[in-house]
């Protein structure tokens, strides 16, 4: 474990709790893409299946349980408890367009042809694009509430910090994971446009408006 990865995980947990707290406190899923949350749930279920078979550390197990339960809880709040506030008309990104390519990529790029390795590769590729429905929804609604912007900033920062972690591990341990690194770079690039808007708008106290 290194500081970059720890900060990345903290940023990730922060994002998950910002979103959960926002929906719970405002009792509304307005502006939130339920489809992205479904994709994140699939990502965590596919990646953390080894939870019951291999013990890495208490930290690892606790975090996996936390991400799986928080993403399931978020999907539940959006599609069940606060379903009336879910903005389905603007949450229209076809998730098949990210599910199928991720599955294909997993069959091409994996570290071994075992079910767990295929599921892991699939989850890595899917996570890279899982935010697309949310970013698509922000462009469709033309804006994002401040709290949603903070959620996206924390979520985007998590994988950006992981890139620093991979650089650090490469130079200190010679650790290199090409699948995770390539997908992580793509994932972070997808947030760049948002990062720019966040820094120039939200941090100046203005609302995040995606210029129509």
């Amino acid at each position: 474990m290194n500081l970059f990865r720890l900060m990345g995980d903290v940023s990730h947990v922060l994002a998950v709790f910002i979103l959960l707290a926002k929906i719970w406190r405002t009792r509304s899923a307005a502006g939130i893409s339920g489809r992205s949350q479904i994709l994140f749930t699939i990502v965590y279920l596919a990646r953390y299946m080894d939870l019951f078979f291999s013990f890495i550390s208490l930290y690892n197990t606790v975090m996996k349980l936390l991400f799986i339960s928080a993403s399931c809880a978020t999907v539940y709040l959006i599609y069940f408890k606060f379903r009336a506030t879910y903005d389905g008309n603007h949450d229209t990104f076809r998730i098949e367009f990210v599910l199928v390519p991720s599955l294909l990529l997993a069959f091409i790029f994996h570290y071994s042809m075992s079910f767990f390795e295929l599921a892991w590769s699939f989850s890595i590729f899917l996570e890279a694009v899982a935010i697309l429905p949310q970013l698509f929804m922000v462009t469709k609604t033309g804006e994002a509430e401040n709290i949603t912007s903070h959620y996206l900033f924390a979520l985007g920062s998590y994988r950006a910090l992981y890139i620093l972690n991979w650089i650090y591990r490469y130079y200190t341990e010679g650790h290199f994971d090409p699948i995770a690194v390539c997908a992580g770079i793509v994932q972070t690039i997808l947030y760049c446009d948002f990062f720019y808007l966040y820094v120039t708008k939200v941090l100046q106290g203005r609302k995040l408006q995606v210029l129509p």
Binding site: D50, N60, Y111, S112, N165, D177, A180
Partner: peptide, 10 residues
């Protein structure tokens, strides 16, 4: 490959 090495990252 990495499958031998333990996947210790989230």
């Amino acid at each position: 490959g990495l499958s031998k090495k333990v996947k210790d990252e989230l």
